[in-house]
């Protein structure tokens, strides 16, 4: 049996010794400052952080799912569905309840995914791709495929445009999300169980853990992080858009992969997520500033994912491969 209090922190939390992603991130930042025109201006950096903030909040959710050994593709669609639900609920319920309804939708989709993966034993790809289709179909169906404008109000636009002590709300929310995630992973009982289940589900079950419940809670918690992102995004676009953030799942998975979370699960630290997110946001920003076609964002993102995962494989194996290839 597991004892109630375990000494020390789970080893899965330890960062890899040279935090490679931090160096990559810093290097990219310096490169961008030197070679990308207008990158290093205050306005642009704030803009990068704003974009990174939403990505970071959702990536925190993705990180939980990845630590559980899963993968979550339905974030983009559930954010779109949330925006539609929010705007449809606005006239009747007012901004706060409307946004809450949108957030609840995302958590609901996450919980369904968790149920399908945990209880029904579906592979995460199948479950989340299925709910992706269902959620985006429902979003488009509700509004007939066209964006629905929201009546402007101060409370409604606060999550995206408000400032607290001069700091934009999305950036504050992202910091808060990181702190909460770190708290859950490092100090929470549930976080330790997520690592346990992700590292070895069979062992977890043999240790008497209700694996299905832990997975369900993990996907629902991921949904909760994504819900915060959905509220900020909806508030920013001030409309219900059935095609709001189609690349969100890809970008969050890429951020986690670039940050060095192994997609086989069981390990991960919140700082890896943060640096991964910053890298993705800077790449996207640089592509726009250099005036390359936006499609380069996709190409670079894909290559970055492959490169990052490739570099995670131990260097010895890479060297062996290179040796064989040259022979």
């Amino acid at each position: 049996m597991m004892s109630k209090r375990l000494p020390g922190r789970p080893s899965s939390l330890r960062l890899p010794r040279p935090p490679a992603v931090a160096l990559v991130c810093l290097g990219l930042f310096l490169l961008c400052c030197l070679f990308v025109p207008r990158f290093a201006s205050f306005g642009n950096l704030e803009n990068v952080l704003r974009v990174a903030a939403i990505l970071c909040i959702v990536a925190c959710g993705q990180a939980i799912v990845i630590i559980l050994g899963g993968i979550e593709f339905s974030f983009g669609a559930s954010v779109a569905l949330a925006s539609v639900v929010t705007v449809m609920a606005l006239p009747a319920a007012g901004p706060i309840a409307g946004l809450a309804a949108g957030g609840a939708t995302v958590i609901g989709v996450g919980a369904v995914n968790g149920w399908l993966v945990g209880r029904m034993g579906l592979p995460p790809v199948i479950a989340t791709l299925g709910t992706l289709m269902i959620a985006s179909g429902t979003a488009a169906w509700l509004v007939g495929g066209l964006p629905l404008d929201a009546p402007p109000s101060a409370a409604f636009s606060w999550p995206a445009r408000g400032r607290v002590l001069g700091i934009p709300v999305p950036i504050l929310a992202a910091m808060l999300a990181c702190v909460v995630l770190h708290g859950l992973l490092a100090y929470g009982r549930i976080g330790r169980l997520w690592y346990h289940v992700g590292a070895n589900p069979l062992a977890a079950r043999l240790a008497g853990i209700d694996v299905a419940r832990i997975i369900l809670l993990g996907y629902a918690a991921a949904g909760a992080f994504c819900a915060v992102g959905a509220i900020i995004l909806t508030s920013r676009v001030a409309s219900g858009q059935p095609a709001l953030a189609p690349n969100l799942p890809f970008e969050t998975i890429a951020a986690c992969a670039i940050g060095g979370l192994p997609l086989s699960g069981g390990r991960g630290h919140v700082l890896q997520v943060v640096f991964g997110v910053l890298t993705v946001a800077m790449l996207n920003n640089a592509v726009v500033l250099i005036n390359l076609p936006v499609a380069w964002q996709l190409v670079l993102l894909g290559l970055a994912v492959l490169a990052a995962v490739g570099l995670q494989k131990d260097w010895a194996a890479l060297k062996r491969l290179a040796g064989r290839a040259t022979r």
């Binding site: 499609a295 894909g302 994912v305 492959l306 995962v309």
Partner: peptide, 10 residues
Amino acid sequence: LGTLLAVKGL
């Protein structure tokens, strides 16, 4: 997923 993104962009 990596090739999906790269190929879509290409």
